[in-house]
Design a protein around this nucleic acid. Structure first.
Lengths: 193, 193
DNA sequence: GTCTATAATTCGATAGAC
DNA sequence: GTCTATCGAATTATAGAC
């Protein structure tokens, strides 16, 4: 995608406002309940503009759900602190960008969102785990297990709102969960003596 | 609930068929996309019957999402095998009853479903954890952490369909995840020497 | 108890004026 | 580029005949 003329168009501000409103609505209501009309109202523009810029609702979601986990370079992290670094990073990322919540909510009912979620966690997390040098044969499995605990943490804390998970201080969660990720990443494969 | 005349009504079969179809649809499509019309069609009855029996869509979901985790009595389990017993039980429960998947999908977008999920995991799992004798001050937190890993496992395996989690044999998942639950249940509180 | 008919909304998407 | 007007489809829910 080489934009020949990356000169800022006047419509860029509108596009950005739409995406911001879309992320908010998708995060709060999920894919089905988030309506183009409501998103347009939030962005103070006409609903037809959304269609013009993004084609249809799926196109809008695809644009709004673009996401980079911004995983730190795990190769530079002391091996014993991988779990701690990862939990802390994910907690920050969840609370700082609602795109992840939008993806999580939408993935429950929308196949496209689920596919996006698979891609993000398989590609980005998988690559990060691979890069610090585990046995290639177990990399995918380890990354999947890490994803299961991370997404479960997010689901119970931000989506379902399970009281003990909502009330917990981030530091407490890090302390409890870090050893789990640490073992999934660097622990022995169960059944292998 | 003392039914004075628990004599079987002729409509009971219809009610049961509706609930069965509702659980299937809610599990497959989530709350919003699962329509009363489709549920009625699956159950081979008229959509208006659903309304007659359950009032409205929320009432139908509330009836269909009634759920018992059927947790085993943890007090009778060897302390060291608590994690293993729990993961195995939950995996069986997920695959044997789609009500849990319906709840998980619906909880992402429907507040009533999220409340139901909170109740199930706080009450049933919380009670089970309390009954085998942890420090009452940490019981809720331990139960919440267990829920986070269990729900994350279910979310990645049954909802998002993350390949490494879908491909894994149940026994492998048990072996990997059991130590996590074991530590959440019986491990020391982090930061407490 | 069961079904027909339909009310009342709401949504995604399109056509076209300006 | 932006907005008005509207179409066509789908949904929950109700009223009432049989």
């Amino acid at each position: 995608m080489t934009d020949a003329a990356p000169r800022a168009r006047r419509s860029d501000a509108t596009r950005a406002a739409i995406l911001r409103a879309a992320r908010e609505r998708f995060a709060a209501d999920g894919y089905d309940r988030a309506t183009i009309r409501a998103i347009a109202a939030d962005a103070n523009i006409d609903p037809s503009m959304v269609m013009r810029y993004y084609g249809n609702k799926e196109g809008l979601f695809a644009a709004a759900a673009e996401f980079d986990l911004r995983l730190p370079e795990l190769a530079g992290v002391p091996t014993g602190r991988l779990g701690e670094v990862l939990v802390r990073h994910f907690l920050d990322r969840w609370e700082g960008d609602e795109t992840l919540a939008a993806l999580l909510r939408a993935a429950s009912t929308n196949p496209g969102a689920a596919e996006r979620m698979r891609a993000i966690f398989a590609d980005q997390l998988g690559a990060a785990v691979a890069r610090f040098g585990t046995d290639p044969a177990t990399t995918a499995r380890r990354a999947g297990l890490v994803a299961s605990q991370i997404l479960g943490l997010a689901f119970t804390r931000y989506i379902v709102g399970l009281p003990p998970m909502v009330d917990a201080e981030p530091a407490e969660l890090v302390a409890w969960v870090a050893p789990t990720l640490q073992r999934y990443l660097t622990g022995p494969v169960p059944g292998t003596p």
